[in-house]
Simulated assay, not measured.
Amino acid sequence: MKTITCLMLLCVGIVSAQQTLSLPEGETSPKANLDQVAWIEGHWKGEAFGGIAEEIWSPPLGNSMMFVFRLVNDGKVSFYESGHIQQVDETIILQLKHFDGNMRGWEEKNQTIDFKLVKIEPNKVYFDGLTMEKINENQINVWVLIESEGSTEEVLFLYKRV
């Protein structure tokens, strides 16, 4: 899965997708701040990859919004993610790390998966290969561009507030 995630990030620019965008080579992220994405805060649950996906997001504090994610299939954790949206200078970035069901990391110790900001709207934020949209107070949609076995697809996570 680590290889899939890394390949996903390398191929984002070549693949045309409906809901995700790519930051063109050499361009910098637009100005943004955490208050513009504070609507992500909350406990969210939905179905994905044949199981139950769950994310818990904190409110902005200390120049970040932290989160944890888990995917449960057949009553067992398939994998976890831990990460944040961090304020960096005049923009924001989403960074995460993956862990298997026994908390063994996928990425190297000092490595993160980084999603640079591409575009921000009042209820929608586009990171490079990952888009989050507030549908209403109790629903958000998250699209992630994933490559597996040579093909790329956008995976939709339909989350409801818990």
Rank of each mutant, 00 (worst) to 15 (best):
S22L: 03
W44M: 08
V37F: 04
E54T: 10
S29A: 15
W44I: 05
G46M: 03
A32L: 00
W44A: 05
P60D: 06
T28H: 13
E55D: 10
I52A: 01
F49W: 13
F49E: 12
Q18D: 13
K45D: 04
T20F: 03
A17Q: 14
A17W: 03
Q18W: 13
Q19G: 00
A53S: 11
H43A: 12
G50A: 11
L21G: 07
H43P: 00
S58K: 10
I52S: 02
E47V: 08
E41R: 13
W44L: 06
S58N: 11
E47D: 12
E47R: 11
I52C: 01
G46A: 06
I56P: 00
G51K: 03
L21C: 14
G42V: 09
P59D: 08
A53W: 00
E54H: 14
L61P: 00
E41P: 05
P30F: 06
V37R: 00
A17H: 10
A32M: 01
P30H: 08
P30Y: 07
A48F: 07
P24R: 14
L21Q: 15
G51S: 05
I40V: 14
K45F: 02
K31F: 08
W39A: 05
L61M: 09
L23K: 05
G46R: 02
Q36N: 05
P59E: 12
